[in-house]
Amino acid sequence: MTAALIGGAIIGVAVSLMLVFNGRVTGISGIVSGVLSPRKNDISWRILFLLGLLSGGVLLRFIQPEAFQNASNNMGLIDYAVAGLLVGFGTLLGNGCTSGHGVCGISRLSVRSIIATIVFITFGVLSVFIFKTLRGGV
């Protein structure tokens, strides 16, 4: 679990910088949504954040190439398409995802975020259970 803890701590530092300097919650779904339908003077920081994510991804390809190796063999393109639809709609309807609710909101002891996180983890567990039952593996 050490790698996960260290990775998590780095994420904690990142979202803390965003709050201390820019006064913003680092919620990825909200940031993406704000790029898709931008408001005046509220887009450049979002684009730069996303460019940061992609640059971090490029860096990872050098320092941790296994970060992009996947062992899920039971997935087709249609699965990714359907999952993307659910994630896009669900995160906007519920005002957040793993980062905004799961990390930032819980850290502020927001009751909404705590409830949302319990619900999306529960339904994530249910989804994996259904997937495995239908496909015979993750």
Binding site: L54, A83, G90, N95, C97, A116, V119
Partner: peptide
């Protein structure tokens, strides 16, 4: 809030991807 989180959870579990890691 609850419905949105539930729909998101179903998608997250199905593919194992949430928005940040996806990007």
């Amino acid at each position: 809030l609850i419905t949105g989180a539930a729909i998101f959870g179903l998608g997250w579990g199905w593919a194992g991807i949430c928005p940040g890691p996806g990007i």
